[in-house]
């Protein structure tokens, strides 16, 4: 993986995102019924100006670190990043599948995929957990707590 400064990346995200949201906040009204500064835009503007200012400071600080070569990077051992990405992608797929198949079928599959991605290879815990856990959750929420699941 390329050496990306994680601090710089996150600081830039806050800085750009903050500026974008500030422009949205400034389109709201600053006036309230009683005062000229008590409207819905006042507090967001106040908070976002602070956010943009401090993230700007952080961008500069992190940039200096990049110049001096002392910055923190995304450090991963081989395979770790792929594993995290796989779990995130599998989670998004799970949410798509659950709409089509309902909770139980989607969760059986998702549990098995997760167990595999987390490195559970022993047959007994793999099968027992994959089958029992989704049913246990279903029973707890739907029957005991009266909370419906998809």
């Amino acid at each position: 993986m390329k050496k990306i400064s994680v601090g710089f990346m996150v600081a830039m995200m806050f800085f750009i995102g903050g500026l974008g949201m500030l422009s949205v906040a400034m389109q709201l009204s600053y006036k309230s019924a009683v005062t000229t500064i008590g409207g819905p835009a006042t507090f967001p503007t106040f908070v976002l100006v602070i956010l943009v200012f401090f993230s700007g400071v952080l961008v500069l600080t992190e940039y200096k670190k990049i110049r001096s070569g002392t910055y923190d990077t995304f450090k991963y051992e081989p395979g770790d990043f792929k594993r995290i990405l796989s779990v995130i992608v599998a989670s998004f797929f799970y949410l798509l599948v659950i709409e089509a198949t309902g909770y139980l079928i989607a969760t059986f599959i998702f549990t098995a995929v997760l167990m595999w991605l987390f490195g559970v290879r022993e047959k007994t815990p793999f099968i027992v957990i994959t089958v029992i856990y989704p049913i246990l959750i279903f029973f707890t929420f739907k029957t005991l707590l009266n909370i419906p699941l998809p």
Binding site: Y94, Y103, T107, F110, T111, Y133, I137, I147, L149
Partner: peptide, 20 residues
């Protein structure tokens, strides 16, 4: 490695239960 998948599934089910 056994606990973490269970935690993740519980996170999803729990957040669904907030407002279905």
């Amino acid at each position: 490695k056994v606990l973490m998948p269970l935690v993740l599934i519980m996170c999803f089910v729990g957040s669904y239960a907030i407002q279905n």
